Simulated scan of single mutants.
Amino acid sequence: MFHSIIPPYLLEQLERSASDPSLRARFRQSLQHDAVLRTRPAARREAVTEAADGRQRKVYDAEHGTDLPGTLVRSEDDDPVQDKTVNQAYDGTGATWTLYKECFGRDSIDDAGLALISTVHYDRGYDNAFWDGSQMVFGDGDGEVFGNFTASIDVTGHELTHGVTQYTANLAYDGQSGALNESISDVFGSLAKQYAAGQSAADADWLIGAELLLPGVQGVALRSMKAPGTAYDDPRLGKDPQPADMSGYVDTEDDNGGVHINSGIPNRAFYLVATEIGGNAYDDAGKIWYGTLTSGNLSETASFKEFAEATQATARALFGDDSAQLAAVTKSWQTVGVLEDQTTLMNAAQSSLEPSAPPSAPPSVPSPPGTDE
């Protein structure tokens, strides 16, 4: 399954707004190329090979072509090379592997030592990075709006997590389950960056793709988990369309039912959980989300509510009925409108049971003239 970091609606907006014909052509080419890739079956996987510590990375160079994987340019334990993008791809996949191994005990994407394959310099001016069901692929960007797609660890972590979801809950890429698929990738992409930088939940920027936007773009990142809808407001990109809660949920057939748009709602729920619990987001909050993803209890078409209730069940199992972790999970899903606030419901129910005021006496009607009182 093809999963890309830049959604089609963003490339469509860039194509519409571009005044430079050559730049418009680059956006159109990326958009058309992605449309073709979405129709292709998942690529065949390379045989698993393991290094001594279980981690195996291989970075290839497509040399601006589209044949995968390309020419091998760096393998596990090789020294850095002169090409910065090769080293960034190597480091980003390594940071993601380390997060999963050290925080959650997972051995690579498939939990069985799958080699982490990356290809850089894919196509010319290609505005995306994607997971194709087998490996990571990075474009160099258009040079005006987006730079090299290897620059953000969270983008690499995001795309590799699509692979983790593929091997675990396998959430359908449509509607709310698709938005959860996207959100889970943002969550663990952000955690990979936070773990690599040693950041607490309070210190993290909670931005996805902050390093992709080039100078002159009016924005800070592709998405903000802390404040969905505020990542950018730029004449070329348009305004960030993500809602922060269910009151702004976007009902659309575009983008597989709004998977990149509505993912802002569960993204914010995770941010709220992590900051409410405090400490490192890859500890308690991360364990709740990872445990939910790998529990085997999620349906492939899980709704936001089903996922929220599953995170409650995981928090309860890990930390107990009266735990601060469970309270934080419940409060966060209520804040974004996925779960109903039981206190509000109880107050409403109590109000409906209170006796109503006695009816007032009917007004007196004067007797017709000429009659006895």
Rank of each mutant, 00 (worst) to 15 (best):
P228V: 08
S360W: 07
Y282W: 12
G219S: 00
G92E: 00
A308N: 03
A52W: 06
L318T: 06
G163W: 00
S177Y: 04
A52S: 07
A317G: 13
D254L: 09
A285V: 05
G113H: 01
A35V: 09
M1I: 10
L99N: 00
E63K: 12
Y232I: 12
R26Y: 15
Y90G: 04
D83A: 06
S30Y: 02
P215Y: 02
D110L: 02
K193N: 11
G125S: 01
R26T: 15
E159R: 01
A227G: 06
A47S: 10
G125T: 11
G163S: 00
S323F: 06
A327R: 08
A52P: 07
P355L: 03
G286I: 03
S22G: 07
Q342S: 14
T230E: 01
S303Q: 11
A221E: 02
W289Q: 15
A35I: 09
Q312V: 11
G216F: 13
G286K: 06
L214V: 05
L37E: 12
H260C: 03
T371V: 08
A202S: 10
G92W: 00
L10Y: 01
T292P: 07
D107L: 08
G125W: 02
F149G: 01
I184W: 13
Q350V: 12
T330N: 04
M1D: 14
F319L: 11
L37A: 10
E182M: 05
L99E: 02
S108E: 15
H3L: 14
A328Q: 02
D20W: 00
G178C: 02
Y271G: 00
A18Q: 07
T252W: 08
T85R: 15
G286L: 05
K58G: 14
L171S: 03
D251C: 11
S352Y: 07
I288R: 14
T150H: 02
W333G: 03
G175W: 02
A52K: 10
A43V: 09
Q218K: 14
G133V: 03
D127A: 11
G133W: 00
S332C: 09
Y100H: 09
P7A: 10
N128K: 00
F146W: 04
D205R: 01
T96R: 01
